[in-house]
């Protein structure tokens, strides 16, 4: 359903990758691999429509992403390197506001449950600036529990997470894939996520 054709990315006068093709079906997982600086984040940003590719196009359910615009964003959740967590807001406010921005109204109860599931009981009312790096990432990833989007694009979701949290995210991703969702992710960690179909995309 997510389809990339001949994607080429040029940054400055350097070509990061060329002619990347892939097809991602319902329940499919795409892992983007490659060394630092090979254009993994650039590819994910292109998939989100934040950057335009130098050549090629991306289609979602048969239509190009640029033409879909708002409709595409209703189906998409992107969590990047920068998680969009505000230092001055509490974990609870961060989750509720970031969900609201992506078009999902979350009640306080739902938000508390999601944070509890991410192992943040008792931290809900702390401002994000006093949380550790891993805890901040948990707050950001809690959004996956409350959004009901099909396509998840995750840039290094496991960075800074401890073993227990990695397991938690792995289970979450597997459940999402079983329900027919799609995941595109990058990671440098060795994890095995069970999926209906797995695409390994290697960037040079």
């Amino acid at each position: 359903m997510l389809h990339g054709v001949n994607l080429t990315c040029v940054r400055g006068d350097r070509r990061l990758f060329k002619e990347v093709n892939f097809t991602l079906e319902a329940g499919g997982l795409m892992q983007v691999n490659g060394p630092n600086g090979s254009g993994k984040t650039s590819l994910l940003r292109i998939l989100c429509g934040l950057t335009s590719p130098a050549f090629g196009k991306i289609t979602w359910r048969g239509e190009t992403v640029r033409a879909l615009d708002g409709q595409y964003y209703r189906d998409l959740t992107y969590i990047g390197h920068l998680t969009g967590t505000k230092d001055d807001l509490t974990a609870l406010e961060n989750l509720r506001i970031s969900s609201a921005l992506s078009g999902v109204q979350v009640t306080e109860k739902q938000a508390r449950d999601a944070l509890a599931h991410m192992g943040l009981v008792g931290r809900e009312l702390l401002p994000a600036k006093v949380l550790s790096q891993g805890q901040r990432r948990r707050v950001a990833l809690a959004r996956l529990l409350v959004c009901n989007t099909t396509l998840w694009i995750l840039d290094e979701p496991l960075a800074a997470l401890d073993v227990a949290a990695v397991k938690l995210i792995q289970d979450l991703l597997e459940q999402h894939l079983q329900e027919g969702g799609m995941v595109v992710m990058t990671t440098h960690q060795d994890i095995d996520i069970a999926a209906v179909s797995t695409v390994q995309l290697q960037l040079a």
Binding site: G70, R74, G80, T83, K86, S98, S102, G103
Partner: peptide
């Protein structure tokens, strides 16, 4: 921009002008 919220605003189903 620095903490990534702006990216999320660009990816919001709501039109960016309204935000």
């Amino acid at each position: 921009y620095m903490d990534g919220t702006l990216e999320q605003m660009l990816l919001s189903p709501q039109s960016l002008s309204v935000l």
